[in-house]
C-alpha cells in the first residue's frame, strides 16, 4: 500500500511561463491603438453638443482642429477664446494656422483636409461665424462641427 501513500504530493505551482506573452500581447494592442494627445488644452474642456447626424472623421492626420471655449487662465479674459495648436489665438491667426497645416501634406491630400471645430455648447454663434468667414476666405471649405452622437434634447438640459 505504500504506492498509494506516495500519491500524496504537493499541488504544483501554476505554470506562469505564458504570462509575459499575454501581457506583451495586451501591451502591443495598447501601443498600437494609443494616440497621445498632441496639444494640451488652454481652454476649458469644451462640452460638445449632441447630434444624430454625426459622421466619423477618418484620416486623423488630415484633420486640423480649432478649439473654442472659455480660457482656463482668468488672466486671458472671459470671452470666447480660440485655441490653435498650443496657444490661445485670435481669429486672424486662423489663416496662418490652416496654411501651416496644409504645408504638411501634398496637393492631393490637401483637397481632403477637414477643419474640425470643437466648440463648447455655450459659445456664441458670432464667434463660430467669424471662424467660418476666415476659413472661407482661404478656401478651407470642409468643416466638421465636432459633436457627440446622441439626442438633440441633451443640448437643452
Amino acid at each position: 500500500m505504500s504506492k498509494f501513500g506516495k500519491k500524496k504530493k504537493e499541488v504544483p505551482a501554476v505554470n506562469t511561463a505564458a504570462l509575459p506573452d499575454i501581457v506583451f500581447m495586451l501591451l502591443f494592442f495598447f501601443m498600437v491603438s494609443t494616440t497621445m494627445r498632441e496639444t494640451s488644452l488652454l481652454i476649458k474642456k469644451p462640452k460638445l453638443p449632441s447630434a444624430t447626424e454625426v459622421k466619423k472623421l477618418e484620416h486623423k492626420s488630415l484633420v486640423s482642429t480649432i478649439y473654442v471655449g472659455k480660457a482656463v487662465n482668468p488672466s486671458e479674459g472671459t470671452g470666447d477664446k480660440i485655441q490653435l495648436n498650443d496657444k490661445i489665438s485670435t481669429v486672424n491667426d486662423i489663416v496662418n494656422f490652416i496654411y501651416s497645416e496644409r504645408d504638411k501634406h501634398d496637393a492631393d491630400e490637401q483637397k481632403a483636409m477637414v477643419t474640425s471645430i470643437k466648440a463648447d455648447m455655450k459659445t456664441n454663434v458670432g464667434t463660430i461665424s467669424d471662424i467660418k468667414d476666415e476659413l472661407q476666405s482661404i478656401n478651407a471649405l470642409k468643416i466638421s462641427y465636432s459633436s457627440s452622437s446622441g439626442d438633440v434634447a441633451n443640448n437643452f438640459k
Binding site: S116, L141, K142, S146, S149
Partner: peptide, 10 residues
C-alpha cells in the same frame, strides 16, 4: 473625432 460635416459655400 466625429461631428456634423458641412461644406461652406465658396
Amino acid at each position: 473625432d466625429s461631428g456634423i460635416l458641412r461644406k461652406l459655400p465658396e
